[in-house]
Design a protein around this nucleic acid. Structure first.
Length: 473
DNA sequence: TGAAATGTTGGGGCG
DNA sequence: ACGCCCCAACATTTC
C-alpha cells in the first residue's frame, strides 16, 4: 500500500537548488530529508578532521534551509542500510531517493543498500547531482575510458550540461517527524578548538557557496587565466570545498560562468577546464579505482621511495626551510585549504626533493583539507608524482625559489604565512640562506634559530631524484 | 600546470 | 672595414 511518503538521503549534495533527488522527493505528499553519519564511511577513507569540521557547519545550514521550507533534517548515525530501514519503518516510507556518489567503496555500499531496500519493497531511485557528465557516458571512439585530459575534455565540451532546476519553495514535512540526533551529537567538531582560522576563512553551507560563486562570477573569473597562478592574490574560485560537499553543483557553476562570460572567452574557458579536471578525476576514479592507493603507471611500483618520518613531519609542519613551501603548508594547517599552484609546489617538494611516497602526502592532505576529495586528491598527487594518467613527467621538478619569484613576486604570500621572515626584502625572502648577513640581521632572522636552514639542497635533491628515476626507466 | 643545459644569433667593443 | 670575442637574449634539447 502506497503511503506517498519518501525518504531523501542527503550525502554529498547538501543543497536545495539543482538537486534532482530533492525534486523527486517533493513529488510525494511528505518527505523525510535525512543525513546518516557513517563514522567509518563503510570504506577506506573516513572523513578527515578538517572535512568533519566543515560537514558540521554545512549540515546546520542545510537544516536551516529545510526549516525555512517547512521541513527539517533528520540526523542519524550508524550503518547506512540499518538506519534507512529503521527510518522507512518509523516514517512509513516506501521510496528512497539519493544523488549518486562515485568513490569505489561507496558505490559498492550503495549497490548493496539499493538491493536490500528493493527486496524490502522500498523503491529506490538515484540521480546525478555531482558531475556535469557521469563517468560512464564519456568514452573514446573504441569505447574505452580516457586516460588523457585534452581529448576527454574535448569530448565533454561537445555536450551541454543539463539545465539547473531551482529548489522547491516548500518541502512537505511530516506532522510528527521521526526521531533525530542533534548535529552536535555526531561529534564532528574537534575536542581542542583549532578551527579559528577556518571560521575566519570560510562560510560553509549552500548559502555561502552561492555567495562565493556570485563573487567569482561578478569579477574574478574575468582575470582567471592570468591571476589563477598568483598565490598572493584572491584569483581563484575557492569553490572546491563547496563543490566537494555538493553545496553547489558543477552545473550551477557552468551555467553561471557561461552566462556572464560566454564559454568561448579565454578566461572562462580556462576556468571551465578546471571544472573539467574535476570531471576527469571522477572519470579516472571510476574506471581505475585501484589508483587511490597504487600508481596507475605500473613501473612506479618499483620506485625507490624513502619513508622518513622526521622529514615528513617537517614538511607537514611547514619547517622545510624553503619559504614558499612552508607558507603553503601553514596556509593549509590554518585555513584547511591551499592555493593550487602551491599544492603543485609542495607536492613536487615532497615527492622529488624528499623522495617521500605520494601516498603519504595524499594522506596528509586528506586529513587537513576542507576540500579533501578522493577523486581530485588522487589525481593531483599522481599527477605531480608523475605516475598517473596524463601526469607531469617525473623529471618535471619544481624549483621552490623560482616558482615563488614568478607567482609571489613581492613575497606577500610568504610574508603572510611565514611571519618570522616578513621583514626580509625581495629577493632574499625567497632564499634566506643566500641573504647577506646584514639583511638577515636587520630583518631579525637567525637561520637555524628563528627560521630553519633548508632541509635539503634543491640542486642536489633534483639530481638525486633524477637518479632514482633512472632506476625504474 | 618546469628547469637546466646546451645551442644559436646578433650587437658591440676592440685590436 | 674586418675578424674576433664576449655576452645577453632567445630557442632548442634534455632531464
Amino acid at each position: 500500500m502506497r503511503t506517498d511518503r519518501a525518504i531523501l538521503w542527503f550525502r554529498q549534495d547538501l543543497r536545495i537548488d539543482d538537486n534532482p533527488a530533492l525534486i523527486a522527493g517533493c513529488r510525494h505528499a511528505e518527505v523525510v530529508p535525512c543525513f546518516i553519519w557513517v563514522p567509518e564511511e563503510e570504506g577506506d577513507w573516513p572523513a578527515g578532521a578538517a572535512s568533519r569540521w566543515w560537514l558540521h557547519q554545512s549540515l546546520r545550514v542545510l537544516d536551516e534551509q529545510l526549516r525555512q521550507r517547512g521541513s527539517r533534517l533528520i540526523v542519524r548515525a550508524g550503518d547506512s542500510l540499518e538506519v534507512l530501514r529503521e527510518l522507512a519503518r518509523d516514517a512509513g516510507a516506501d521510496a528512497v531517493y539519493w544523488n549518486r556518489r562515485y568513490e569505489p567503496a561507496v558505490v559498492k555500499r550503495d549497490r548493496a543498500v539499493e538491493a536490500a531496500l528493493s527486496a524490502d519493497g522500498v523503491r529506490v531511485e538515484t540521480f546525478n547531482s555531482a558531475l556535469l557528465y557521469e563517468p560512464d557516458g564519456i568514452r573514446t571512439k573504441s569505447g574505452q575510458p580516457y586516460q588523457v585530459f585534452t581529448p576527454f575534455w574535448r569530448a565533454c565540451t561537445a555536450k551541454r550540461p543539463d539545465e539547473v532546476t531551482a529548489g522547491p519553495a516548500r518541502i512537505p514535512g511530516m506532522h510528527t517527524p521521526p526521531k533525530s540526533l542533534k548535529i552536535d551529537e555526531l561529534g564532528l567538531l574537534p575536542d581542542v578548538d583549532w578551527a579559528a582560522g577556518m571560521r575566519a576563512t570560510w562560510r560553509p553551507g549552500c548559502v555561502g557557496a552561492q555567495e562565493r560563486l556570485d563573487t567569482f562570477v561578478a569579477g574574478i573569473v574575468r582575470r582567471y587565466d592570468v591571476d589563477r597562478n598568483r598565490m598572493d592574490i584572491d584569483g581563484t574560485s575557492s569553490l572546491s570545498p563547496h563543490l566537494h560537499f555538493g553545496e553547489i553543483g558543477p552545473r550551477q557553476v557552468w551555467h553561471a560562468v557561461t552566462s556572464v562570460a560566454g564559454k568561448g572567452e579565454e578566461a572562462a574557458r580556462v576556468y571551465l577546464a578546471e571544472i573539467g579536471w574535476r570531471e576527469f578525476a571522477y572519470h579516472l576514479l571510476v574506471h581505475f579505482p585501484e589508483t587511490v592507493r597504487k600508481p596507475l603507471r605500473e613501473k612506479f611500483d618499483g620506485f625507490p621511495w624513502r619513508r622518513r618520518k622526521a622529514a615528513l613531519s617537517r614538511w607537514q609542519r611547514g619547517q622545510t626551510g624553503y619559504p614558499v613551501v612552508d607558507a603553503a603548508m601553514r596556509q593549509l594547517w590554518h585555513t584547511g585549504w591551499m592555493h593550487n599552484r602551491a599544492r603543485m609546489i609542495v607536492a613536487s617538494f615532497l615527492t622529488k626533493d624528499l623522495l617521500i611516497p605520494w601516498q603519504d602526502g595524499a594522506a596528509w592532505f586528506w586529513d587537513t583539507l576542507v576540500d579533501a576529495d578522493l577523486a581530485s586528491n588522487t589525481l593531483g598527487w599522481q599527477w605531480t608524482a608523475g605516475c598517473g594518467a596524463d601526469a607531469a613527467p617525473f623529471f618535471r621538478i619544481f624549483n621552490p625559489v623560482t616558482q615563488a619569484e614568478k607567482f609571489d613576486p613581492e613575497g606577500a604570500y610568504i610574508r603572510r604565512w611565514v611571519p618570522e621572515l616578513a621583514a626580509l626584502p625581495v629577493p632574499w625572502i625567497f632564499k634566506p640562506w643566500e641573504a647577506p648577513k646584514d639583511a638577515l640581521a636587520s630583518a631579525g632572522v637567525t637561520l637555524g634559530k628563528t627560521y630553519p636552514k633548508p632541509m635539503v639542497d634543491h640542486g642536489e635533491a633534483r639530481s638525486a631524484a633524477l637518479a632514482a628515476f633512472e632506476a625504474i626507466k
